[in-house]
Structure formats: structure tokens, C-alpha cells
């Protein structure tokens, strides 16, 4: 029983780590450009298809991965910011949110038109090792390790480099950052590129487990969005904690509860947090003077 639960915990942390990556992207975009990217889940699908397409076209896997990253940086990073966010941001958050939803639909239908509605397998690491009575998959270890290293590196970058501090300053007070000579536009663009890198990594890590299908983005995006809110939305560390918590709870709920309600776990958790801890796990409660 104990070992079964440890097994569930490891698998849950692995799933949660990928949610954390996507949720961190949500948080970064919100902090630096007030963008709630409702297409974030579909952003995970695009690089997965790009990698599969490049690999199928004959590129070795490492080059296909690199190609997928480059495509994501261009399409989901630079083009997303320049062609959608910049023109829409001046119209307010709601039009931008709706435009992001439309982009998500376009990405889904676009990938469906090119690749069809079937699910594609994604290359994964085979085998595993025994841990007591448990058999631990290398794939789970890879997912958990890579995601944790990525978020730790991101945290280090934000907290311990000059550019990271400029990005934080841009997120916290863009007006003053601009006056102080911090290249705010470049910092915001860097955030979009970081987000594109995070979703590409998430695509590589989560795709072997769920297969690649045009409509995967909906559930991934919803889970990551809930994870970001549960964590405190305005906190990168919160997004990580929210993602891990959600991944573990989803796994336990699917095992000990009816499997068909697994998809309801993020929403139930979200409702619970909104009702009882609206500032999230690591967010700070703020008061508004009236």
C-alpha cells in the first residue's frame, strides 16, 4: 500500500512538474504584459506536432527537438507577441483574452487540418529500475528531473542575474523600469521567448504519456491555468507549487476515486482555493482602499 502510494506520488509529481512548466509561463506572461494566455495549452501541442513532423521528415530526434524549439520561439514567442498581444493589449484584457482563445482554436484546427485527428506516439525513454518493490520508469524520472531543473534554472535566472532582475522590475513596475533605462520592451519579448521555451519543454515531457493529439491543449491549459491560480498567479514559485500539488492530487483522485472525475480535480481545487484562500498557496492577500 505504502509503495503503491509512493509510485502514485512519483507519477503525480512528474505530471505536476509539466503543469508547473506551463503554469510558470502563464505567470510570467501575466507579470510582464498582463496577458492571460488562454491558448497556453494549445501552445504545448504545437511544438509536439512540429517535432513529430520534423522527425517524420527525416531529421534525427535531437535536430527535430531543436527545430521544434526554434519554431516555438518564432511562432509562439515573437509572432504571438508582435502580431497578437501588442495590437490587442491596448484594447484591454478581455479582448486580448478572447483573441487568445481564438488563437487556441486556430492552432487546434490548424494542426487537425495538417496532421488529422489521430493520436501520434511521441519518442520516450524506455525501461526503468527497481526501487524496493517498485518499478520506476526512466521516463518519469526524466520528466520530473528535467522539469525541476528547468524551473530551478529559471528561478536562478530571475533571482540571480542582472537580466532576471530587470525582468522582475519590468513585471513589478514597468513605468519606473522604463524611466530607469531598463529595456522594458526587450524584457517583455524575452518573457514571451521564455514562455515558448517552457511550453516546448512541457511538450517534450508530457507528450510520451498522453500521445500527441490536436485537442490535447484544452485539458493541459485548464490544468496549468488552475495550477497558476492555486499557486497565487503572480508568483513563479506559486505556479510551481500549484502544478506539483495538482499533478499529485489528480493522480491520487484517479486511483482512489472514480476515474471519470479525474478531469474535475483541477476545477474542484480551483473552487476551493477561490473560496477559502483566494490569494493562492504563495500569494499575498492585498487590500483595496475604497
Amino acid at each position: 500500500m505504502l509503495w503503491d502510494n509512493i509510485d502514485l506520488l512519483i507519477a503525480g509529481l512528474a505530471t505536476g512538474a509539466t503543469y508547473a512548466l506551463v503554469a510558470t509561463g502563464f505567470t510570467l506572461l501575466w507579470q510582464t504584459s498582463a496577458t492571460v494566455n488562454f491558448a497556453q495549452g494549445d501552445f504545448v501541442t504545437l511544438p509536439a506536432f512540429a517535432i513529430i513532423g520534423l522527425h517524420a521528415a527525416g531529421l534525427p530526434l535531437p535536430l527535430a527537438l531543436l527545430g521544434g524549439l526554434v519554431i516555438a520561439l518564432i511562432v509562439l514567442g515573437a509572432m504571438f507577441k508582435l502580431l497578437l498581444v501588442d495590437p490587442m493589449l491596448s484594447h484591454g484584457l478581455l479582448p486580448l483574452g478572447i483573441a487568445a482563445i481564438a488563437l487556441g482554436v486556430a492552432l487546434q484546427e490548424g494542426t487537425k487540418a495538417v496532421f488529422g485527428a489521430e493520436a501520434f506516439p511521441f519518442p520516450s525513454v524506455a525501461g526503468g529500475f527497481d526501487l524496493g518493490p517498485l518499478f520506476v520508469n526512466w521516463q518519469d524520472v526524466l520528466v520530473l528531473g528535467a522539469a525541476l531543473i528547468a524551473v530551478a534554472a529559471l528561478q536562478m535566472f530571475l533571482a540571480r542575474t542582472r537580466t532576471g532582475r530587470c525582468m522582475q522590475a519590468t513585471a513589478q513596475n514597468p513605468t519606473v523600469a522604463l524611466i530607469l533605462g531598463i529595456p522594458v520592451k526587450r524584457m517583455v519579448m524575452l518573457t514571451f521567448l521564455l514562455n515558448a521555451s517552457l511550453v516546448t519543454l512541457a511538450a517534450v515531457l508530457i507528450s510520451p504519456a498522453i500521445l500527441v493529439k490536436f485537442d490535447n491543449g484544452g485539458s493541459i491549459g485548464l490544468s496549468a491555468f488552475c495550477a497558476a491560480i492555486i499557486g497565487g498567479f503572480n508568483q513563479v514559485r506559486g505556479a510551481i507549487a500549484g502544478g506539483l500539488l495538482l499533478g499529485v492530487l489528480e493522480n491520487f483522485a484517479a486511483t482512489y476515486g472514480p476515474d471519470q472525475y479525474r478531469a474535475a480535480v483541477p476545477m474542484l481545487l480551483l473552487i476551493g482555493f477561490v473560496l477559502f484562500r483566494p490569494q493562492g498557496l504563495l500569494g499575498r492577500a492585498t487590500e483595496r482602499a475604497v
Binding site: R165, Q168, A169, Q172, N173, T175, V176, A177
Partner: peptide, 10 residues
């Protein structure tokens, strides 16, 4: 500034 303008989380 008239209203405080620091970077609150730093």
C-alpha cells in the same frame, strides 16, 4: 513620484 514607485518584491 507623488505616489510611491518602488519595486515592491525586490
Amino acid at each position: 513620484f507623488q505616489l510611491l514607485q518602488v519595486f515592491p518584491q525586490l
